[in-house]
Amino acid sequence: MRRREVVQFLGAALALPFIPRGAEAAIKLGAELHLRLDDVPFRTLNRDQQALVTGIAEMIIPETDTPGATSVKVPEFIDLILTEWASDDERAAFLAGLSDIDVRASAMGSPRFVALPAAKKVELMTALDAARGDKTGAGLAFARLKALTVYGYFTSSRVEQEILKVQMYFNGYQGSVPFTPAV
């Protein structure tokens, strides 16, 4: 159920089986022709909105010893979804919520989120994270931005291959393998 909820961004139902992880290189058969994300320019987000989305996405999943959200083109993915996938109402609600985030930033002394000092950004992000259940405004936009950032990041080809190391063939199923979190 949880995955279904996660990917119900903007309200559409989707049921994906598990994405395999933690093994070696993926073996792919029958890859379909499709338009690469690299080929798609920003079409919905204006420059300020791009900067805001990029700034927040990178704060959600920053560059560390592994790629961050920007490196794997999460902002471009979000723009694609807003342009080709979201309904007019959903897109408008999201963009209005982005504006509200900047309004919240104004109340903290900067006209835009991206211009806030680092500590203030964290403070506002923390507040937005707590408001993800809101039905409109900044909380709604942040919830959708966070969901799309996580989804866009972990479904990018680079993360699938380099971090998740998605495997498509297993010789047998093991249901009880020792596991220690690497955190």
Partner: peptide, 23 residues
Amino acid sequence: PAVDYVEHVLPGEKRYRGMGNRK
């Protein structure tokens, strides 16, 4: 099957990453 079976195409290879061509 050689063309139509696509069980090993990962989300990263799909335009909408598995969210479907909604429209």
